[in-house]
């Protein structure tokens, strides 16, 4: 099955939907593996929100595309180069500080993204935004809170958080290299970056974290389906069952 995307709005929405899906899958890896029980539940809950968000976005995409494919097709039948998530969210759960930093950076971005999409002409999308924004706010409460606990915790937790930030910042630049499609569907692209930088810098300055000059990796843009090496491993686990047993159904 070759998945095709015809419509510009669908093409744009894949960036948001795939980002939700891939982050959800990353966090699901921590279900039963988080450092302690409450955190296990918290991460799994946030992961569920993201899976739900992705599912609803794929439904909207499917409608726009005339229901040629189902949300399941989009999730399980595409290859690496056909995913359009930001590279930040496919980075592995190397360390708890990575998980939290990745979440915080994503949540700040997602909040402004869905705020802007609330004024979309697509009514289904507007309805989804009003739900999603509440969930993002809750996730942000959790990830921001952890940034403070880690940054201001011990020497070790501060160091690991600084390491996580130094690494993950390499994947940030592409997020703000907006193209024509972004400009068509976001109401104010520049504001997405402004809001993000302000909030990240504000929090870093309060938790003894230094915002270093980070050289972005010279990798091609996620908007063209380019990724870091991690996506393939992630997809191989996520897509294993429907690929091995096509059209398998729970009975």
């Amino acid at each position: 099955m070759k998945i095709t995307i015809e419509n510009n709005e669908a093409k744009f929405l894949f960036r948001i939907a795939d980002t939700s899906l891939i982050l959800a899958q990353r966090m699901a890896e921590l279900c039963s593996n988080a450092p302690f029980l409450e955190e296990d539940i918290a991460i799994s809950n946030c992961s569920l929100d993201l899976f739900g968000r992705a599912e609803e976005l794929y439904k909207i995409i499917a409608t726009i595309e005339g229901n040629k494919f189902t949300p399941d097709d989009y999730v399980f039948r595409r290859n690496e180069r056909e995913f359009f998530n930001i590279k930040l969210v496919e980075q592995p759960n190397e360390d708890f500080a990575w998980t939290i930093t990745r979440q915080f950076m994503h949540d700040v971005w997602a909040k402004e993204v869905f705020t802007q999409l609330s004024s979309s002409k697509n009514e289904e999308l507007v309805g989804l935004c009003s739900k999603v924004l509440k969930e993002i706010e809750y996730s942000l409460l959790h990830s921001r809170d952890w940034m403070y606990r880690l940054g201001l915790g011990t020497e070790e937790s501060n160091k690991r958080t600084q390491d996580a930030i130094d690494h993950l910042l390499k994947y940030v630049e592409e997020i703000f290299n907006f193209d024509d499609l972004d400009k068509e569907y976001f109401s104010d692209c520049a504001n997405i970056e402004r809001v993000w930088q302000e909030e990240i810098n504000r929090v870093f300055s309060e938790i003894n974290i230094e915002r270093k000059e980070i050289q972005p990796l010279s990798m091609r843009d996620f908007r063209d389906g380019f990724h870091s090496e991690h996506i393939g491993h992630l997809l191989s686990i996520m897509q294993y069952l429907p690929r091995a047993y096509p059209d398998a159904k729970w009975s």
Binding site: L48, D49, L50, G52
Partner: peptide, 10 residues
């Protein structure tokens, strides 16, 4: 209408 978008009881 679902309670949460990812509500597993949906």
């Amino acid at each position: 209408t679902p309670t949460y978008t990812g509500c597993p009881a949906k």
